[in-house]
Amino acid sequence: MKQHTRPGRAWIITPGLRLSRFQAAQTSGAGVALVDLEDSVAMQDKQAARTAAQQFFDRPDAPCTLGVRMNAPTTLEGTKDLVALAAYASKPDLILVPKTESARDIELVASVLDAQGYTPDIWALIETPRAFDKLPSIMKAPRLGGVVFGSADYAATVHCGLAWEALLYARSALVNSATAAGIPAIDAPAFDLGDLDALRREAEQAKELGFYGKGAVHPRQAAVINETFAPSEEEIARARAIVAAGQRSGSGITSVGGQMVGTPFFTAAQALVREVDESARGADASETP
């Protein structure tokens, strides 16, 4: 299985022409801030957005991973994006590739942008029925860092609703394929800007399903996503108890808190404890003068 660096739980995207929003996105608390060259930019404004978006990356001290959602690489606008991105003085840490439908799309982006000292993290935006049909082959792309669910485009193509039940198959299929490939999956945003309770419920469902994080379309959403996806103290304590029980039982079946646990439970608990401990070590290292 591939091993990749996992960026933050909350991902926020901001239009490439809205320079006044750049700093708000970068300081929202999201682990990944993306500047958008695709859906939020009208066709006649694409070149202006490419020029403006350079300023998004002129911040070496940004508190998050900075990335870009380009246009689909098999389109003329996507080709122009790649040429522009390759010439940026300050380059994106992460490239989100929309309308990904084959491993070739990922490799095309890598072949243009990879250079000595620069190999951006490349993620696929999975948002078409054809992409879901091709998931096993897409996941084989060597440079694929992770996947993001594009619910709006998928629902529009399938002519289904955006409610959780309508998109449950797509979400489940994406998480399953991503997990099999050893890469993280990020859930689509919740588009109701004012209903943070609904966002929290949907984030909890996405976490339960196996998503690593969730998209945000407004800075106020980032904190809710971070809080929801972060392991609770109760979850951490239970995971440590399960790990300890597994050690005592020699990884044999035992019980914790009245529940039978065995190898699958030990594996999941060990992964959570390892993630929590590694995160704590990283925080300690960043605070060391």
Rank of each mutant, 00 (worst) to 15 (best):
Y212I: 11
Y212A: 14
Y212T: 14
Y212S: 14
G213A: 11
G213D: 07
G215N: 10
G215S: 12
A216P: 03
A216R: 03
A216Q: 04
V217K: 01
V217M: 13
H218T: 12
P219C: 05
P219T: 09
R220Y: 05
R220E: 15
R220M: 14
R220L: 13
Q221D: 10
A222Q: 08
A222T: 15
A222P: 10
A222R: 05
A223Y: 03
A223N: 05
V224R: 05
I225P: 00
I225C: 05
I225Y: 06
N226I: 09
E227D: 15
E227A: 14
E227H: 10
E227W: 00
T228K: 03
T228H: 09
T228F: 07
T228V: 15
F229S: 03
F229I: 10
F229W: 05
A230T: 12
P231G: 11
P231S: 11
S232R: 06
E233V: 06
E234A: 15
E234V: 12
E234R: 12
E234W: 00
E235A: 14
E235T: 09
I236Y: 08
A237G: 09
R238V: 06
R238K: 12
R238T: 09
A239R: 08
R240A: 12
I242A: 03
V243S: 06
V243D: 05
A244H: 04
A244I: 02
A244T: 09
G246L: 02
G246V: 01
Q247F: 05
Q247S: 10
Q247V: 09
R248H: 08
S249N: 03
G250M: 04
G250K: 06
S251T: 03
G252N: 13
G252M: 13
I253V: 14
I253E: 04
S255F: 02
S255E: 13
S255A: 15
V256D: 06
V256K: 01
V256G: 03
V256N: 01
G257R: 06
G257N: 04
G257A: 01
G258C: 08
G258N: 06
G258L: 04
M260T: 13
M260L: 14
V261Q: 04
G262T: 01
T263I: 12
P264S: 05
P264F: 07
F265H: 13
F265V: 00
F265D: 11
F266N: 01
F266H: 00
T267M: 05
T267L: 07
T267I: 10
T267W: 00
A268K: 15
A268I: 03
A268P: 03
A269G: 03
A269I: 00
A269H: 06
Q270N: 13
Q270T: 13
A271E: 11
L272F: 02
L272W: 01
V273L: 02
R274P: 03
E275Q: 13
E275V: 07
D277T: 12
E278R: 04
E278I: 04
E278D: 13
S279L: 06
S279C: 02
S279G: 12
